[in-house]
Write a protein that binds this DNA or RNA. Structure first.
Lengths: 338, 338
DNA sequence: GTCTCCTCTGCAACCGTTTTCACGCGTGAC
DNA sequence: GTCACGCGTGAAAACGGTTGCAGAGGAGAC
């Protein structure tokens, strides 16, 4: 280990040309004679040269890398976001630098700064907080193309791509209503994220539209445990025909608690989640959920980054993609008393 | 957006000193007069300067970053590895660059090269393949400190840190035997990874030691679906007292299939997994599993990287950490016919 | 034969830091 | 008064690539 790195100068010397020519031959950006190209490649091969990405980036001012900051990589949902983003970038030979803000606005700010100082070509952020996430992100945004994903933050003139939560909730409630549900409970999170509030409000609107009774709105946090707790509360008070959850992880807790209380799902209560995690297929019973168009979101995020790189002064845009409902056994199509 | 980046020269000019002095004041590496330090900081503040990490790294030859390559970030187990590695690095103010090899040796090689060209200070790899993963990794290893984690590869003179699979399997079988189990089946993966083969062999050894009957060894892949398939096969043939799974995700499939076939777990069959994913607490019933010392592994991996950076010629070392058994309802302590 | 044009090559500067080296200056020892 | 020393500072080189510019040389037009 620890031999001196071999540089383009070494290659050039061995090939008997100038570093400039060697560089041109290797990158292929500018035509060089066949003879020279052959010699340079041979030399490069022989020495085992490979370009130093940092030096190159410093000179060219591009890293072919975008950065992403998510509140928690170990959250299956954000993990999916990262995964699909990576796949989309790989298609255009770019790579992804992943950072975790651990749900803290301060750490988030550090991570954003870090990525900017690393000269990423673009930045994708799922903001950990609401307005308090903004300063750091906006500061980054006037150095590098930046797009918010999943969570919207009020007042930012930032590009955004996310899911139409209202439409998702409409699909859920339409589905439940068609299945003969008369009363519902909502189990969600108290957090101030746009997704949490958006889903709650859409739920209320749809319940009202269909004149369905809402027996409870349980607001806590996005966790399995909270789902369990909320389910216990519902059991103690009044059990509705259906429980609508604002996230799958919460729905899992609800399912589990109902199961333990010997409440039949879906016969007695229907349960619906949101996000359509891989997890949903392995719950018992498998969970009906709202699927977001993940790949399309990633694609769109990248498109927005590239568009802004092209024209930094273009107006900010907000892309909202339609989700779809994935019906599984926890809330089948068939009417309740059918 | 897109103002010219502010450099240390700009700061220096504004503060009325040379770039060298500005750099020294800002980094604090070398004493400067209080007066100068004040002026430089004021100037830096005013201009909103922040160091370009690439330029710095190019000069100092350190990035304060380690790279990690895993076969699939969307696999909860590897995700946990990444997560804990990030946490450990953060403690010493370093960061992690994550790459996904998508279970392909070719992509893995690319990712490894990429990280090396980015001048990471260290490299952590969960090899996607067996011996065929080796060339790229070994090439990397003589440029930068490298450690394999989780999966061992024969013949590499590489540092390694992982879990004692034999000990884990001993815990499992001892536990089952103590609970009165007489016959077992093994559901695992056919892959040539050290973890897969290690667990299978340990299973056989432990079964022999306790003179327990092995009704079947079902080898497929690490997936939920495979767990379901294997369980169906067991149901069609002979159902043992316990099913030992080589990974939790497989155990989930088994549980699900047994549930659907109305086989009582743990009363009729006990099920045990391996890895102790967060997932295990939300299965029904919650899954008994072998917990690996993740945090300690990450810590140890980092220690090995640092040690090798210190002394590149030190002999390679192999750290194997003891796992522990987490007993849950899918396989309780109480004897079977108690 | 001269002029123009075109292709390929080399020199040197550049990206933004850090660091080596040398120097100026003040202090204290002798 | 000289010398050694320590401290803070600046000029310039370095990290490892790419690229603007200019020049060399050959081909083709007249």
């Amino acid at each position: 280990m620890e031999q001196r790195r071999v540089t383009v100068r070494d290659v050039a010397k061995l090939a008997g040309v100038s570093p400039a020519t060697a560089s041109r031959a290797l990158s292929g950006s500018v035509p060089v004679s066949a003879e020279v190209k052959r010699k340079v490649f041979r030399a490069s091969e022989e020495l085992g040269w490979s370009a130093n990405a940092l030096a190159r980036a410093l000179r060219t001012q591009r890293t072919d890398t975008v950065g992403i900051v998510v509140p928690a990589v170990n959250n299956p949902y954000f993990m999916a976001v990262v995964d699909v983003m990576e796949a989309v970038l790989a298609a255009s030979d770019r790579s992804l630098m992943v950072c975790d803000s651990r749900d803290s606005v301060e750490i988030e700010a550090h991570r954003v700064d870090l990525l900017v100082s690393r000269m990423v070509d673009g930045l994708v952020v799922v903001p950990a907080g609401g307005a308090d996430s903004l300063p750091a992100i906006q500061r980054a945004a006037d150095r590098v193309p930046t797009v918010l994903i999943d969570r919207w933050v009020e007042g930012a003139g930032l590009d955004y791509v996310g899911t139409d939560n209202a439409e998702g909730m409409r699909l859920v409630v339409d589905h439940l209503q068609a299945a003969g549900v008369r009363s519902m409970a909502f189990v969600g999170a108290r957090t101030a994220t746009s997704t949490a509030t958006g889903r709650l409000q859409a739920f209320r609107a749809q319940a009202a539209r269909h004149r369905l009774r809402v027996v409870a709105e349980e607001l806590g946090e996005y966790s399995f445990t909270w789902g369990e707790t909320a389910a216990r509360r519902l059991l103690d008070a009044e059990l509705p025909d259906a429980v609508v959850c604002s996230a799958d992880i919460v729905a899992c807790g609800v399912l589990n608690q109902l199961h333990q209380a010997n409440v039949a799902v879906p016969e007695r209560v229907r349960v619906v989640g949101f996000d359509d995690l891989p997890l949903d297929q392995i719950t018992y019973p498998p969970l009906t959920s709202v699927r977001q168009a993940m790949a399309e979101q990633a694609q769109e995020a990248l498109r927005l980054l590239d568009a802004r790189a092209e024209d930094p002064s273009r107006p900010s845009s907000r892309s909202v993609l339609a989700p779809s409902l994935v019906v599984r056994e926890s809330s089948p199509k068939a009417p309740r008393h059918g």
